[in-house]
Nucleic acid binder design. Structure first.
Lengths: 358, 358
DNA sequence: CAAGAACGAAAAATCGATTTATCGATTAGA
DNA sequence: TCTAATCGATAAATCGATTTTTCGTTCTTG
């Protein structure tokens, strides 16, 4: 525990060895827990370690290994609660196993995603947790395949023929949303999302549609998607409402879509749930303190992170066999933003902004 | 560009050397841009690099350096937009200079903060960007001092005698908030915050109080703080309102406080800005799409990140001299959550929850 | 009691790069 | 012409650990 010296160079394993009067190899063995060392020598090593405040240099320690004790994490962004929590969880889990997590943001760019992967490959990371920008078939996964990297794909994925995948069971969650909305009497529902994330969006959409139609064959489901960014989505949504379309509920398949929907509602002076109901995929802390509180699908971040790390380390340790595709169940939080249609006056609209409460 | 081989072992500098018919030292020099190499040999090296798809192993490359090309970033959390953006920015800036960023979350724990720093010290990071849990005088900064680490402190800091500091000019921003609130006629204002972050909170508080009193000497300013977490703050706030205190405006010194205030308002059935006005330190994307939009102080994330990295690399490159303390200006976004007092009926309260719009 | 097994620890090789020292071949200068 | 300086490149040392090989003792055993 002593660290009285403020000198520059840190003690190396050789310093410990000479202080303990043994060889560096012996020190290494003692610290690795090898039992074929005389207890007396082991004690001298521990003493010297203590006295010098010696700690293993992870960089040097990793030099000879083919796989270094580093795990890479690549997320599309860090700004949302979901990915923030995800990185926090992954970091903790990696640390528990003595690994260092190197996190990087692909900033929603597949090109950047590939560059980051190349850099992580340079570091000889033991494994990668990749949340792809688009889906499991992007250039990122290809690069990993091509270079024999071990990894797990999460979030915007369904299943892959090379990597284990873990994601929220968004189809089941969407079905539950459908149950709730149709159950409340909604028969004209708008679903908005980004088509870029193909498979996941399709799963959510189909999960929702199938359940909704099963409950009420005459329900009308409109879909608005945009390819890459959310701004075109905003424009499409604006046009849609301007055309006079009046769904009684909106289900947004992604957080940014929920924000867009809310801002379009506010733009038209519509209030939830009286004028229109809203459910969003992805929960956020603020959603329960606003008026109205926003109904949302909560993704099981901890479970996804923990399952992903389990699968990853299994592969890192050499497990073989066909890749698995895990789906973790979500929770749907029904809040005030959802009501029954026709329970309040549908303010005709118009594009002017108006103060909400007076 | 060629990477036809899917074999396991990556080519080393010796593979390149033998393919080019030169020594490893020559390859190293060519790649380092040393000019005392015969152009013909340089070309052969480049060709071999291309053919083999060779890339330098950053781990091995860093072995002999005292400071490795790694920058550590320690944030109290990753879940908020502010720190999420901060990590994104820092990562980009580190990458630009050929450094790898290792980010870790102290999870609002000073003990963990120190552990992470110890681990980063093990890695011999070139520098650290530390956003301390409490302030610049915590065990984290002490550890860095003790071990001669180079670093920059950001966010919850004012100035330090050992490290450069960069933070938002929250005193000036708070003064501007005071100007706006007092200017609107508020004369009883509640300020809430966490005292743990001593210096910063005091700066914000004093900046606010001084300006408010300068404009209206009879303004009443109540302060509620809690030491560590936000839950006691919630309790205190609840008690405060239950005692019958009726400020006309609340200024929250931190994001979590803004959420707590909103949830207490909703608990009592109060609406912004008619029943009470609200301004929060720290902006978030959702604040502009809710009803009402929440007024907030926007921190200059990019400027803080960029300035922190500039200062850090200056020190990494050996710059000496007294530490600097930078304050980056904030922007105050006045939104609908702020109005004039008495412009709407103050609903007496009561603790029952009530639907907002009807 | 001597040959062989078992044990513990030191010596040496290794990982993949960088840097320093060394060396041979030209070229320059005396 | 002989020595000295210069140039380009290679050999070797280094970084800090781990792992393999080697070696000297001690303990068995025939």
């Amino acid at each position: 525990m002593v660290q009285h010296q403020t000198r520059q160079r840190r003690p190396s394993i050789h310093d410990v060895a000479s202080h303990a009067g043994v060889s560096a190899a012996t020190v290494s063995k003692v610290l690795a827990g090898v039992t074929t060392v005389r207890p007396e020598n082991a004690q001298r090593v521990f003493d010297a370690v203590e006295r010098l405040g010696y700690r293993v240099d992870p960089l040097a320690s990793d030099m000879r290994r083919a796989k270094r004790r580093i795990i890479g994490a690549i997320m599309p962004e860090f700004e949302s609660e979901f990915f923030g929590q995800m990185v926090t969880e992954l970091e903790g889990l990696a640390e528990q196993r003595g690994y260092t997590l190197v996190a990087a943001s692909s900033r929603e760019s597949e090109a950047r995603e590939k560059e980051i992967l190349a850099r992580m490959h340079d570091w000889r990371v033991a494994g990668v947790v990749l949340a792809p920008v688009r889906n499991e078939h992007g250039p990122g996964a290809d690069f990993m395949k091509m270079n024999g990297m071990t990894g797990v794909l999460i979030d915007r994925v369904l299943s892959d023929d090379a990597f284990d995948t873990v994601s929220a069971d968004s189809a089941a969650a969407s079905a539950e949303v459908a149950r709730m909305l149709v159950g409340k009497g909604h028969s004209h529902i708008l679903v908005i999302g980004l088509a870029e994330q193909a498979a996941t969006v399709r799963a959510r959409l189909e999960g929702f549609r199938a359940q909704a139609l099963a409950l009420n064959p005459s329900v009308r489901i409109d879909v608005i998607t945009s390819e890459v960014s959310v701004e075109p989505l905003r424009t499409s949504l604006r046009d849609y409402f301007a055309r006079g379309e009046r769904p009684t509920a909106v289900y947004s398949l992604l957080l940014k879509g929920t924000l867009v929907a809310l801002s379009e509602f506010r733009r038209r002076g519509w209030h939830c749930p009286n004028d229109i109901s809203l459910v969003g995929f992805d929960d956020a802390e603020w959603m329960q303190v606003t008026w109205p509180a926003i109904a949302a699908v909560v993704q099981p971040v901890r479970q996804i992170a923990s399952e992903a790390m389990n699968l990853l380390f299994r592969r890192v340790e050499g497990a073989v066999g066909p890749p698995t595709a895990r789906l973790e169940p979500c929770q749907v939080l029904m809040r005030e933003s959802v009501g029954s249609p026709g329970s309040g006056p549908h303010s005709g609209g118009g594009d002017r902004q108006q103060p909400p409460l007076s």
